[in-house]
Measured scan of single mutants.
Amino acid sequence: NQASVVANQLIPISTHLTLVMMRSEVVTPVGIPAEDIPRLVSMQVNRAVPLGTTLMPDMVKGYA
């Protein structure tokens, strides 16, 4: 099972991601792979992401 990136807190819209905001967890459905966490740092979310939500490629500007 592959770990995905999950929000560690509420991430407001247009926030630049930091390591503190993300954790890796095995979830269904599978989202952005956990090994991409370093790549996600300083990218922006294009919507509010609630605590515990799996980050999907379409939620992060410039990821997909």
Rank of each mutant, 00 (worst) to 15 (best):
N1R: 08
N1L: 15
N1Q: 10
N1A: 14
Q2N: 14
Q2D: 08
Q2K: 12
Q2E: 12
A3S: 13
A3P: 14
A3D: 05
S4T: 04
S4W: 03
S4D: 03
V5Y: 02
V6D: 02
V6P: 00
V6E: 02
V6G: 00
A7W: 03
A7E: 01
A7C: 04
N8L: 05
N8K: 09
N8C: 07
Q9V: 11
Q9E: 10
I11Q: 00
I11H: 01
I11E: 00
P12R: 08
P12E: 09
I13R: 11
I13V: 15
S14K: 13
S14L: 14
S14Y: 15
T15V: 08
T15A: 10
T15L: 04
T15P: 00
H16V: 12
H16C: 09
H16Q: 14
L17K: 00
L17G: 00
L17E: 00
L17F: 01
T18F: 03
T18R: 10
T18I: 06
L19A: 15
L19R: 14
L19Q: 10
L19W: 14
V20Y: 11
V20P: 10
V20F: 15
V20M: 13
M21C: 04
M21E: 02
M21K: 01
M21W: 03
M22C: 04
M22K: 00
R23A: 06
R23Y: 05
R23E: 04
R23S: 06
S24E: 11
S24P: 12
E25N: 08
E25F: 07
E25V: 10
E25W: 08
V26C: 08
V26Q: 14
V26M: 11
V27R: 14
V27H: 04
T28R: 13
T28L: 13
T28W: 14
T28A: 14
P29Q: 05
P29N: 05
G31M: 02
I32P: 00
I32G: 01
P33W: 09
P33Q: 05
A34D: 07
E35Q: 15
E35A: 13
D36K: 11
D36R: 09
I37G: 03
P38I: 11
P38K: 09
R39G: 11
V41D: 03
S42A: 13
S42D: 13
S42Q: 11
M43P: 00
Q44A: 07
Q44K: 08
Q44R: 10
V45Q: 00
V45H: 01
N46C: 07
N46I: 10
N46T: 11
N46Y: 07
N46Q: 11
R47S: 09
R47V: 11
R47A: 07
A48F: 10
V49C: 06
V49K: 00
P50G: 11
L51N: 14
L51S: 12
G52H: 07
G52D: 10
T53A: 10
T53S: 09
T53V: 11
T54I: 09
T54Q: 03
T54E: 01
L55Y: 01
L55F: 08
M56Y: 11
M56H: 05
M56T: 12
M56V: 07
D58A: 11
D58K: 13
M59I: 05
V60C: 01
V60P: 01
K61V: 15
K61P: 13
K61F: 12
K61N: 14
G62I: 04
G62L: 08
A64H: 14
A64T: 15
